[in-house]
């Protein structure tokens, strides 16, 4: 499984970025290889409009199985993610990536 996080930083101790479209980083954890890769999303963050779809496009290209974020995507991004049949878990704001991952594993994050 590949897990994507919206993150304020690049490692396991970084906080979850509660925003989807304008997240600072997208961090991907590959459960098979146990790798953690961080993708800088600042280019999208600086778009005036359409940050939600632009970040969704990146998510699509990264092909994760699960997305863990904070408040949850806005309307347009939600539509795009639904099209990819992405499993989305929200409510991970105020957690580090590690905490969020644990909560996800134990089934304590809300799926939308």
């Amino acid at each position: 499984m590949k897990i994507a996080f919206t993150a304020a930083g690049t490692n396991w101790d970084s906080m979850i970025d509660p925003r989807f479209g304008r997240t600072e980083y997208i961090v991907i954890h590959d459960e098979n290889s146990e790798e953690l890769i961080a993708i800088d999303n600042s280019a999208v963050k600086n778009e005036a409009h359409g940050a939600g779809t632009a970040t969704s496009q990146r998510i699509f290209e990264l092909k994760p199985d699960v997305l863990i974020t904070g408040n949850g995507p806005g309307d347009t991004a939600a539509k795009a993610l639904a099209h990819m049949k992405m499993k989305i878990f929200v409510g991970a704001q105020d957690m580090t990536l590690k905490q969020a991952y644990e909560k996800y594993k134990s089934g304590e994050l809300k799926e939308v």
Binding site: E47, H49, G50, A51, G52, T53, A54, S56, Q57, F60, T76, K79, A80, H83, M84
Partner: peptide, 14 residues
């Protein structure tokens, strides 16, 4: 305006 996405074989318009 990022109103068009290409998801594999699909074009999505927002």
């Amino acid at each position: 305006f990022h109103a068009i996405m290409q998801l594999g074989p699909t074009i999505l318009v927002f």
